[in-house]
Nucleic acid binder design. Sequence first.
DNA 1: CTATTCCCGAGTGTTTAAGTCAACTATAAG
DNA 2: CTTATAGTTGACTTAAACACTCGGGAATAG
Lengths: 163, 163
Amino acid sequence: MRLTTKGRYAVTAMLDLALHAQHGPVSLADISERQGISLSYLEQLFAKLRRGNLVSSVRGPGGGYQLSRNMQGIQVAQVIDAVNESVDATRCQGLGDCHAGDTCLTHHLWCDLSQQIHEFLSGISLADLVTRREVQEVAQRQDLRRCNNKTQLLDKIETSAVE
Amino acid sequence: MRLTTKGRYAVTAMLDLALHAQHGPVSLADISERQGISLSYLEQLFAKLRRGNLVSSVRGPGGGYQLSRNMQGIQVAQVIDAVNESVDATRCQGLGDCHAGDTCLTHHLWCDLSQQIHEFLSGISLADLVTRREVQEVAQRQDLRRCNNKTQLLDKIETSAVE
DNA sequence: CTATTCCCGAGTGTTTAAGTCAACTATAAG
DNA sequence: CTTATAGTTGACTTAAACACTCGGGAATAG
């Protein structure tokens, strides 16, 4: 089992996508800037997310990525899985041939653990995360900082005036 | 977070130790043979387990390793921790400075996950594992195979006659 | 003394993560 | 049509870690 920056980046980027979905496609450049993730690395991750049917892309100016279904239908476990970070804790991928063709002493322990983690991460959708208060606070801070940095205030003021 | 062969080996070896504790110290050579783990690698792992006060050693012929407390007092989480495989799933080790000195979008998610895993693995002691039926079956198979392989039947027959 | 066993450090091959670079293709806007 | 935007792809690099191996020690039971 492995849970590193790779899977965390993927979930973070997907959440960023969900948070900014209302203004059309989101470019990787925006996500890169807001979340501090290398653009080229994001490209690699989104290639996998696309293959996993979690996002769809729009090319050209104004393009970017969109969630391929609604937020309720995308679980954290699926995102991590899509970027090849298995949540499985066994050595044998659950097959039970971990020691000389037989189950090893601790096989069942790792099976139980895998199931535990999988259930936990399968029970959380992007929609769940978006509605969490802590997430909203962080998102707001990130959007504000971005406005100050890039003096895109006009754009933001217009947007909030419309709302 | 990382859970690889390293942590799995450590738990397996500790469980082997617990299962064979009644006959005095257990040598790493025995564990290596029974569990199919490289002896030199076991030495490295047990150096860490020793530093973590989970085992104590007896040098010289007939020596080996013993659990430093009873089986009930040693949890799986402690073993994994001792060999430097953190169960923490956050990037920031829970500090909350994962993105430019602030919490990242998904910080709380990984905190929750870490807690989930830690609670699970802290709730399982070596004693719990030893009494599990699947573990006993595997252990029995391993002991039998070893007898056949090495023709140490005499030794085993004596042992069971004494019991 | 000698065989056994733990102890320790140094080194090695492989894999992977994480990131870079460069050269594409598709498309919206002027 | 041109141009700038933005996704798409592949090759490459760097660093770290895992999973070992090897060689020489030090302690101790017989």
